[in-house]
Amino acid sequence: MIELEGLTKRYGGKLAVDGLTFTVRPGLVTGFLGPNGAGKSTTMRMVLGLDHPTAGDVRIDGRHYDELKDPLTCVGAVLDAGDVHGGRSAFNHLLCLAQSNGIPLTRVHEVLDTVGLTSVAHKKAKGFSLGMSQRLGIAAALLGDPRILMFDEPANGLDPEGIHWIRTLMKSLAAQGRTVFVSSHVMSEMALTADHLVVIGQGRLLADTSMADFIRQNSRSYVRIRSPQRERLLHVLHEAGITVVECGGGALEVDDGKAELIGELAARHRIVLHELSPRHASLEEAFMRLTAQAVEYHAHSDVPGGSWPRQASRAGWGTGWGAGRRKGA
């Protein structure tokens, strides 16, 4: 478990991280989402005690990072896969990390095998592709068999197969009851991986919610229907009290509609359907709205008395988005 309490980091006059309070829980993949420059990496560096917080506190299972005995056995992290001495072989890189935390040599061979780098274990790291470097970073994170894993943008530089591999890895680590904290600036990637979502923008917390709730609140779901007997279908749906929106290309859309219900209705009236598909509007769009609002808010932040009303604003973006959508529909 990682607990942040009012975590703040100021670089000169700029607040990179602004009073973050949230908890990353075990057994889940927690996605840490925000646009570039939102403060994700700074937050992660503070978790590892690499950067000192200006204010606030972050604890790993109740303790500060530098109080952990053999920290690699508690927390495994990949912040930047390039944080390796290029002249050292993958094996020696992992060996020196293992030795510093009393991890046995056999474990080095195990993790090399897990990430598929055994064949290049004695090659110098500077010859590695970005994808291989990511794998080496992940091997180092897994070395101490830690209960907590933290990845900063792990999909960067990986090919589709690699992305699928790391997604599966993170899910299986969480399924084993571990705490998995992974940052990304791509919503669609998170939607496939994360169970829980922490969204930040301009260093501030924008959302701390389960993935399911986020989807429910932020994605418009509708059923798309196409039929050669369009007029009859419209009539039947109208009779049943279902509101239909006509779209281009002869398609119909029913907001929050149940595909089963509509299908059965059409069957009962012997109406031929060419398409009946439940759909979700893009989460990416919801995410951009959410973070854009943070940017907007930030621009007005010198208005007096401007302490961030977190709960209110969180309700605000949900309803705002909903209202905007209805207006458009």
């Binding site: 590892l48 005690g49 912040l79 390039g82 944080d83």
Partner: peptide, 9 residues
């Protein structure tokens, strides 16, 4: 950049 890996260990 090894310093960050080293200090995390």
């Amino acid at each position: 950049g090894m310093i960050r890996t080293s200090l995390a260990a």
